[in-house]
Design a protein around this nucleic acid. Sequence first.
DNA 1: ACATTAAGTGATT
DNA 2: AATCACTTAATGT
Length: 216
Amino acid sequence: MITEQEQQKKIRQQIGYLFEKELLQEIFNVGKTKKVPMDSTILEPGESLLYIPFIIDGSVKVSRENEDGEEFLLYYIERGDTCAMTLQCCVKNSKSEIKATAIEESEILLIPNRYMEVWLGKYISWRNYILDSYHYRLSEMMETIDSIVFMRLDERLERYLKDHAKLLGSLEINLTHQQIAEDLHSSRVVISRLLKQMERNGMIQIQRNKIVLSSI
DNA sequence: ACATTAAGTGATT
DNA sequence: AATCACTTAATGT
C-alpha cells in the first residue's frame, strides 16, 4: 500500500506545477488516487460524474459511442490532463456523453465534483487550468474533424499510428487491426489492406497483435 | 490435435 | 472504401 506522503509526492511531481500551493493542499485533502488497469473503462456514456478525474500517470482514450456500441476516437488525454466533457458534467450534474478507456495502466486523481465551482472563484490557477483544458480539447477535436473531412483513410491511419506511438513513447503498437478499425470507425479488412500497403512501403512491420513503426 | 482468434485476399458493390 | 466469403496463420487448451 502506498503511504499518503508518497502519494502526495507523486501528485506534486506529476501535476504540481499546474496549481498554487494552497490549491495543491486542498487537492491533497479531498482528492483520492486510483490505479486503473490497461483497457479498463473509466467512464461510460450515460454515467453521472461524482468526481472530476485527472490523469496523474498513463494515457486515456476518449471516444464517442453510438447505440450499437460502435466507437469513434475523439482524442487522447495524458498526464496533467482532464477531460473537458467531464468538467461540464460535474457542474451541470449531467450525464457523460463520452467513453473513457485507459490505454495503458494509468493512475487517476479524483476530486469530488462540488469543488469544481468553488475553486473556480477561489483560485486563479484552477480557472486558468480549466479554461486551457477547454481550449486544448476543442483544438484537438478540430484537428480530428479536419482529418475526417480532409484526409484519406490511409493518411488518417498513419497519423493514428504515429500519435499512438508518441503518446506511449514506443514504436511498438500493441493493437489488433480490429481495434484500430473501431477507433477510426472503419472496417478490419480495409485497415488490414492499408497496413499491408504501409508494410510494403517499409513504414511498418506487421506482427500478430502488434505493429512496429520504422520511425515516427 | 483441435478450437479460437487474427490477419490476408479476391470479388462485388 | 465497405462488405462478403473464404483462406491462411498464430496461439491457447
